[in-house]
């Protein structure tokens, strides 16, 4: 159970008791990792008070605010359970849903993603952009998840621990994780309106999300084949170069006219660019070979849970 919190002083106590209430009757033993993302209010003090009476609560404290992805990564690293569940610290998710998530993992799924079917947020400023963003993300990454923004998710620990989490990746964890070919399931969750505190999101993140999406798309589809990707990138320049060269040849040889310097020159430039791009691809291969993201690791990870029943809710792979 991983909960990143940032300036949620009013929410933390009710949140914690809700989690305990939801998890205690279940047959699994649990721990709660609270990641304090450099809160500037009394969040930490409240949390320490809670921890004093409950050894199942771990608090990972950041020195400053690093953002949600970093908080998730720290939580994942610190957590020791077999099933990791992440949720927001703002009480908009209902801890009572956790039970179903864990049950799904038990069924053999590697990742279970929440879907806030009826969201309790402002329609125009939150729900419409989110709907569009989710549609784009699903189209681009090929992982059809209806609600990427829902932070209530459950993971098999071995899978999530193998996925690199950095920058602002937390929104795309299922997409990145699709590299490993996990069994994905989606669960409807209850969603509550915010009771205390203010939302920390705004519309301004759209541009960042789009660029990140581009990165993730390239990363997941081409990490293991950088040369191919760069060659694709180089194709248009190669085409331009060929066009320019053939025009030059045509002008000089067939029409016997003057040598068309600008056209030939740009042909050379594009040809040079093609070579440079392909060399970048070669460097990319080198980088990948030296890096620590290995497809066979992923293969091993997901192969472990063979025997999962195929279900109508199973999404891909």
């Amino acid at each position: 159970m991983i909960v990143p919190v940032y300036n949620e002083q009013d929410n933390i106590v009710p949140l914690y008791s809700a989690i305990v209430r939801a998890l205690e009757p279940l047959r699994w033993s649990f721990e709660v990792v609270l990641v304090d993302d450099g809160s500037t209010d009394a969040t930490l003090a409240h949390a320490i008070n809670l921890a004093r009476s409950d050894s199942r609560l771990h608090i990972v404290k950041f020195r400053r605010n690093y953002g949600q992805t970093a908080a998730m990564a720290a939580g994942v690293e610190h957590a020791s359970g077999e099933v990791l569940i992440t949720m927001d610290g703002d009480l908009q998710n209902d801890p009572a849903d956790i039970e179903h998530f864990v049950a799904k993992i038990d069924e053999g799924y590697d990742i279970v993603v929440g879907w806030r079917r009826d969201r309790q947020d402002n329609f125009l400023s939150r729900r419409v952009p989110s709907r569009i963003a989710n549609w784009i993300i699903a189209k681009v990454t090929g992982v059809p998840i209806k609600d990427n923004g829902c932070s209530l998710k459950a993971y098999r620990a071995s899978v999530i621990k193998a996925i690199p989490l950095y920058s602002e990746m937390h929104r795309f964890i299922p997409a990145v994780a699709s590299m490993a070919g996990p069994r994905l399931a989606e669960m409807e969750v209850r969603h509550h309106a915010r009771r205390y505190g203010t939302s920390k999101y705004g519309l301004s993140r759209i541009y960042k999300v789009l660029l990140d999406l581009l990165v993730i798309k390239t990363v997941i589809s081409f990490t293991s084949r950088p040369l191919l990707w760069f060659t694709l990138l180089a194709l248009p320049t190669l085409l331009f170069a060929m066009l320019a060269f053939s025009y030059t040849a045509y002008a000089v040889l067939v029409r016997g006219g003057q040598f068309p310097l600008p056209v030939a020159g740009s042909g050379f430039i594009f040809a040079a660019c093609t070579i440079m791009l392909m060399s970048s691809g070669a460097i990319g291969e080198l980088v990948f070979r030296l890096g620590d993201v290995r497809e066979r690791d992923f293969a091993r990870l997901t192969a472990k849970s063979v025997g999962a029943t195929s279900d109508s809710q199973e999404l891909r792979k």
Binding site: V60, K61, H78, P164, S167, G284, D292
Partner: peptide, 30 residues
């Protein structure tokens, strides 16, 4: 653009070595 992509590739494949956050302390009581 290609150089930027190369950079992303380097970071992605080495993300586990370059950590971008610092944990100040882990608090858990006995």
């Amino acid at each position: 653009f290609a150089i930027g992509l190369l950079g992303e590739l380097i970071i992605f494949t080495h993300a586990r070595d370059i950590k971008d956050y610092q944990v100040e302390s882990v608090i858990q009581f006995a």
